[in-house]
Nucleic acid binder design. Sequence first.
DNA 1: CTTCTTACA
DNA 2: TGTAAGAA
Length: 125
Amino acid sequence: MLGIQEAATELGVTMRTLRFYEDKALIAPQRVGTTRIYSKREMGRMQLILRGKRLGFSIREIKEFLDLYDVDPEHHEQVRTLLVKVTDRIEELRQQKTAIEQTLEELLSIERQSLDWLKGTPDGK
DNA sequence: CTTCTTACA
DNA sequence: TGTAAGAA
């Protein structure tokens, strides 16, 4: 059981971040009076939240996944939901990748044309 | 001094 | 999410 300061340090986030996710109902640390206590469970959930964020999932998506952790002990529906989200995310990234490649090609084309134009001018360069 | 809440950026 | 302010 850790205090908010220690929990934050261990997770590499700030106390604000922990309170933020609690406000979004992704975690629900115990309370001793008004001070928060972070158990192994909250720490584990935070690890998953942080990873979900790294992978580009929204807080809502992460919450959906996390909530199944309690409702579905065997993690059946949980894994299915995860697979769907992961598949969607992969597709989303592929589209972004294509968009970036197109923009890049367009930019490279302009760069080439500019360079060529410069070659034909007096003080060219 | 540390944590909490609330509000604003 | 950071930061600030006032309470506990």
